[in-house]
Amino acid sequence: MNKYYSTRMSIFVFAAPALLLFTVFCVYPLLPQIWMSLHEHDGFRNLGFVGLDNYKDAFANSSFWTAHRNTYLIVGISVVLGLPLSMILALIMDTQTPNLRRFFKSAAMFPAILSVTVVAQIWVAFYEPNWGLFNGILKSVGLESWTRSWLTDQRTVMPSLGLTFLWQYIGLNAMLFYTGIKTIPKQYYEAALIDGANFAQVSTRITIPLLQYVIHYVVILSVLGSMAFYSHVRVMTSGGPGDLSRTVVYQMYYTAFETSQFGKGTAIAVLFVLECLLISIFIQRFVAREKLEY
């Protein structure tokens, strides 16, 4: 049967469209990227080969490091804070009555379906220093001294952006975890219940170990997602104040489009792709890699 359907012609027809689209629009653009990163380029004219100068300049630029610190802070927030919180929500959701659970599920996914622009703009209003929600709440409970201009204070700008990001995707991740939990056969719990294990014990000893595969998927999703953190920054702070809330992707755009140095911008892009590759390998090798059979 395989022979009957696998003619050269049919293989070509089935494989070519996707491979072509993928090659042209996803892989090919990486090549001029590398070429451009070795030249001085203003987006329009090639001003000559400069070797690795663009890379050296990138490393010498303090904004480049600020952008890295910020990017990895967001990655850290979404992994260290976001994933455990999502997991806790998922575990609690599992213990609720079906009605409450349905209600919760709809609410949890809601932020993720809103447009990034909308979410970011709403949070701009929440963080607004003069009439915004957070300062309003702090004032009303007598914590006037805690109020601040969240998006222009250098200590709070990144955590504030991180919180918005967290809020938008925490429910979605909880849902992913929850569906994983649903696939765990009930008999695993019965033994534990006879032993008199409590909720926390059941969760850490049975549920989470059996969720390795889903955890792995969600970790990759959130790490790569937060590496490319950009749109919220664009809308909420434009990378400001100054360069303090730029992420790597933002710094790349800024360098290429705002300062008209496309060569330097693409050098940052090339470095960033390498980082993403390394991180993917790392997660692939070391994080939640054992697939547990049950």
């Binding site: 696998s6 491979l19 993928f22 996803c26 090919y28 990486l30 987006g43 992707v249």
Partner: peptide, 30 residues
Amino acid sequence: SRMSWKLNGTALIYISLGLIVPIEVVVIPL
């Protein structure tokens, strides 16, 4: 998955590269 093409394995590896490249990064050449 179903046809006997000798490059099946390679093509699968090749396409999975797309999971890693963030779209943001190739904006300029794209």
